[in-house]
């Protein structure tokens, strides 16, 4: 037990330092992004439409566009997105809604392909830990057990809760970097080491079954819980710039696996309607501003397709 005499005060001290550093509303962008969500969430009771997911799921769905499409007034739409909020974070929000006994007529959840392979980013863990009601921790850990590295995920969840700092590290580093070293120009940064700019690489989910097992398990749990909260659930498959590279067999196979997995999830849940925006909508690099978020042209294409698909599904 003498070991704990060292470990516990160290963890407490880490927690204290973190309180000083990242709870002052000026540092800790990742936390502050959630404060925006908190504000919208607590103000908005009795809404009928729930928008959930990351920024890519909602930044093309402004209330002024969506409200007339669904035939509801703008204040009826609750935008519960959080930047970078993937399935586990969305699940935490849904568990919270269940705890507060909220009810909706329609819930719209957008998922990206690249999200399927990204489950250990410190930001995701911060969001999950912050938003998940304590009583649902065992549920989250059980879902993490379906992932590639359950111990790692559990450790991060624990580490984040105890030290509080884990999820903010990348942000604090980048802030300090900017303050100490000046802002970084990603387009010029290579010049110190090479005469030729290296090719750009973007995150790509290879859709290997082991890598996506956790995310599909969370999506399934998320849809089931949403089904309890909402009369109807719309699961939207969002496009990204990798759709312009379908000639590459690995990209093609990844997209096909992504669609098939979500079709299966929707087919086994009668309350879920799948809207696949990855087939005929935005797909060219010009349709995206950074590979994932849509450009003006991409937004226009996506809104048109969404409206058509919604009508075809009888939800308009």
């Amino acid at each position: 037990m003498r070991h704990l005499l060292y470990i516990v005060p160290i963890l407490l001290a880490l927690w204290f330092v973190d309180q000083c550093l990242s709870r002052d509303r000026s540092v800790g962008w990742e936390r502050n992004a959630m404060r925006g969500f908190e504000w919208r969430w607590t103000k908005a009771d009795g809404r009928s439409v729930l928008l959930i997911g990351s920024s890519t799921a909602v930044d093309w769905l402004p209330p002024e566009y969506l409200a007339p499409l669904l035939g509801v007034s703008r204040p009826q739409i609750l935008d519960a997105h959080v930047n970078g909020c993937h399935q586990d974070c969305a699940h935490a929000i849904v568990r919270r809604a269940a705890l507060e006994a909220r009810h909706f007529k329609l819930a719209i959840l957008g998922v990206n392909q690249f999200q399927q392979c990204d489950d250990l980013h410190p930001k995701r863990i911060l969001q999950q830990h912050t938003l998940l009601p304590t009583r649902d921790w065992p549920r989250a850990l059980a879902l993490h057990a379906r992932g590639e590295q359950p111990m790692l995920a559990a450790g991060r969840l624990l580490g984040n809760t105890l030290s509080g700092a884990y999820g903010d590290t990348a942000f604090l580093q980048s802030q300090w970097r900017d303050a100490l070293l000046g802002p970084r120009d990603a387009k010029q940064a290579h010049r110190w080491y090479t005469r030729e700019a290296p090719p750009k690489t973007r995150p790509f989910c290879d859709y290997a079954p082991a890598r996506v097992a956790y995310k599909l398990a969370v999506t399934a749990a998320l849809l089931d819980d949403l089904g309890e909260l909402s009369d109807r659930v719309v699961l939207v498959l969002l496009p990204d710039a990798s759709l312009s590279q379908l000639a590459d067999p690995s990209r093609h196979a990844a997209w096909e696996a992504h669609r098939a997995a979500h079709q299966q999830l929707a087919a086994s849940r009668p309350f879920v309607t799948l809207i696949d925006l990855s087939r005929d909508g935005a797909r060219l690099p010009a349709d995206f501003s950074d590979g994932f978020h849509l450009s003006k042209r991409g937004i226009s294409l996506q809104q048109q397709l969404f409206a058509r698909e919604l009508a075809a599904a009888g939800l308009r």
Binding site: M1, H3, I7, L152, A154, G155, L158, G159, Y166
Partner: peptide, 16 residues
């Protein structure tokens, strides 16, 4: 890794 932190804590909780 955080996983090792969990392993370490559990191990030294039981070890003594």
């Amino acid at each position: 890794s955080p996983a090792f932190v969990v392993f370490f804590l559990l191990f030294f909780w039981l070890w003594p």
